[in-house]
Write a protein that binds this DNA or RNA. Structure first.
Length: 618
DNA sequence: GCCGTTTTCGGCCCGACTGTTTTCAGTCG
């Protein structure tokens, strides 16, 4: 096990891309480094094994040069090429990319003409009016840079999906209420259900011939708008107090499906979709799906020789492009008024937005192998919920009533254990007393909902649990979580967690990394080994649905579930309103390609009881 | 720098907006 992880190597490749951009290198070269980084980030196998078996160069986007650099990084933790490159560029330049309106070319010009190599120096030069005098710059650019420097902290910040969704909801409702608007949707990373969101994207369709100006006017005049950053015929951008930016695109109705798809992204998904279209002699854009016009590529030329998609396909075949010519795709945008039809026009099943990350969803859609993703309505209950007995703000009965109101059949109570004294963790006596109250409440039939008695039991520093086996045996289930000694090294933390997983009383592992999105990195632990141990011991791993956790990360779930890991979507609710967090967890589960069968808390009550009993006696 | 039934060169997704310019480059998504 080398000291350098594939993510650290991916970071280096991304940094190289930035530096090459600042140097003015061929943009396709910088893109190649980014593509290589992405391939590493998505790699589901052990990088060391891939290198040892000489398969690195066969990964998509990694050729001879990148394979060599990755191997060097993995073996030595260093890369001579990177160090030389870094030394050749003023270190302050990369940070200037964060300022809106500044890209590599402008930064280079500032550096070459004015010797600016830090944001502080840039600030001074703007105040002295030097920047406005440069060719290609002007007064407005100078003002914009100054504003960008002032606000860069707020502007650069990402936002929790949950918070962004709360802002977006009334905007969407407002757009849909406008008389000119026929259809409106949000797009972007919010629609894809990404755990954090950089800005909000909205697409609104207006009736053909209708004036779109009132729509943009309404958008720019919303409450909370601090600044209108762009305002054109088809696009408006605003920035809210707090820095969250929102973009609106206004399109004619017949372009709505294309615009929605395009601005939902991801970028990687779109690139693959366009390439797929081009391979069929078609050009896909936010405007529509058209026969590819006479561009520079042979494919495009071949397409241009035939007026229709069928002509393009046969032209491709005569060039020897297709051994098995696919059925001619329907060309043009006519009749494509939904994303379903757009995907169908390219021979694909509908790909849910959550899967559009360019991670194999197009291949799966082509093969008819997309999963039937879990939905919020599939959940029958949830584990890992707190009450006033530890650090919750609602009583046992209030939590039960709220869960029943959601239509759930059961609710698991998992208050903290005694080592979490900061959270008023329960000792053995209080825990057993609570289990007794739960038993009585169930027997009273006060609720139709069934309560399961559990605990969120601390995993101690050495991997032992906070309660002994006899105490844990009195419970219906146990969530084991790390709440202290976050700074153990990776090997020790991994061993600690695996030891807990191997305890037969443990039903599920809580928040695997302890991360708090945008606030705190998770503790260092080897996810692959923990997943292996969970599968081997038939322990469930929680998908903690708290909007600032979403832990275990969706990126791990697809492969883990394929290998047999089960998931529990847990709100980690500390009050009744927080039960609704499961919606964020369902998002993450969907991004992890999970179907209902992989999520235990979709089981109906009777089957859940049987499953827990079987686990307890095993 | 990657890729390839176009196969060792030549292409790599593409359009809107802004601010600068006087026909377009840079930035952004």
């Amino acid at each position: 096990m080398g000291g350098v992880t594939r993510n650290e190597i991916a970071d280096v490749l991304n940094n190289i891309a930035v530096l090459l951009e600042l140097k003015g290198e061929n943009p396709f070269k910088t893109r190649a480094y980014q593509a290589g980084a992405r391939t590493l980030e998505a790699l589901e196998e052990d990088l060391g094994a891939v290198i040892a078996e000489g398969r690195l160069g066969s990964l998509k986007g990694i050729g001879e040069a990148l394979a060599k650099k990755i191997t060097e990084l993995h073996a030595t933790g260093r890369l001579e090429f990177y160090e030389k490159l870094r030394a050749s560029i003023a270190p302050g330049l990369a940070g200037m990319l964060e300022i809106p309106g500044l890209g590599a070319k402008k930064i280079r010009a500032l550096h070459e003409k004015l010797g600016i190599d830090t944001i502080a120096a840039l600030d001074r030069a703007c105040r002295d009016g030097l920047v406005a005098g440069l060719p290609g710059f002007g007064e407005k650019t100078q003002e914009k840079i100054l504003a960008g420097i002032r606000n860069r902290e707020a502007y650069g910040r990402r936002h929790l999906w949950w918070d962004a969704a709360g802002v977006a909801e009334p905007i969407l409702a407002g757009l849909r209420g406008l008389p000119q608007v026929r259809r409106a949707e949000h797009a972007g990373s919010l629609r894809r259900g990404l755990e954090t969101v950089g800005d909000l994207d909205f697409i609104a369709a207006v009736r053909a011939g209708e004036d779109a100006a009132p729509v943009a006017d309404w958008f720019a005049a919303q409450p909370g708008v601090r600044e209108v950053t762009a305002r054109g015929a088809t696009k408006a951008s605003v920035r809210f107090e707090g820095g969250l930016q929102a973009d609106l695109r206004i399109v004619p109705e017949e372009q709505f499906a294309f615009a929605l798809h395009h601005f939902t992204g991801s970028k990687e998904h779109n690139v693959q979709m366009r390439q797929r279209a081009l391979a069929r002699g078609l050009s896909l854009s936010e405007w529509g799906l058209e026969p590819a016009a006479g561009g520079g590529t042979v494919k495009a030329k071949a397409a241009a020789t035939g007026a229709t998609g069928a002509g393009a396909a046969s032209a491709g075949a005569t060039a020897g492009a297709a051994a098995a010519a696919p059925a001619p795709p329907p060309a043009g945008r006519a009749g494509i008024d939904t994303e379903e039809k757009l995907f169908a026009a390219l021979g694909l099943a509908f790909i849910p937005p959550e899967l559009r990350e360019g991670l194999g969803e197009i291949e799966a859609a082509e093969a008819g192998k997309l999963p039937r993703l879990v939905e919020a309505a599939d959940l029958r209950g949830a584990f890992h919920n707190h009450t006033t007995e530890s650090d919750g703000r609602a009583t046992l009965e209030e939590m039960a009533a709220a869960a029943q109101a959601l239509g759930w059949e059961y609710l698991g109570i998992a208050d903290h254990s005694k080592s979490s004294f900061q959270a008023h963790g329960l000792d053995e006596a209080r825990l057993l007393a609570q289990a007794g109250r739960i038993e009585k409440l169930n027997a009273s039939k006060k609720f139709t909902l069934h309560l399961f008695a559990g605990a969120e039991c601390d995993i101690l520093r050495d991997g032992r649990l906070d309660f002994d086996d006899a105490t844990l045996a009195r419970l219906d289930y146990v969530v084991a979580s790390v709440h202290n000694a976050f700074s153990l090294d990776e090997a020790a933390m991994t061993a600690r967690i695996i030891r807990a997983i191997e305890n037969p009383r443990v039903t599920m592992l809580g928040h695997m990394t302890g991360r708090l999105l945008l606030r705190r990195e998770g503790y260092r632990a080897d996810a692959a080994k923990i997943i292996d141990a969970a599968i081997a011991n038939a322990v469930v791993i929680e998908l903690n649905a708290s909007p600032w956790r979403l832990d275990m990360d969706w990126r791990h779930w697809r492969r883990a579930a394929e290998r047999g890991l089960l998931c529990s979507i847990n709100p980690d609710a500390h009050d009744t309103a927080a039960l609704a967090y499961v919606a964020a967890g369902v998002n993450a589960a969907r991004k992890g390609w999970l179907d209902k069968a992989r999520v235990v808390n979709t089981l109906p009550l009777a089957r859940m009881k049987a499953w827990l009993r079987k686990r307890a006696s095993a």
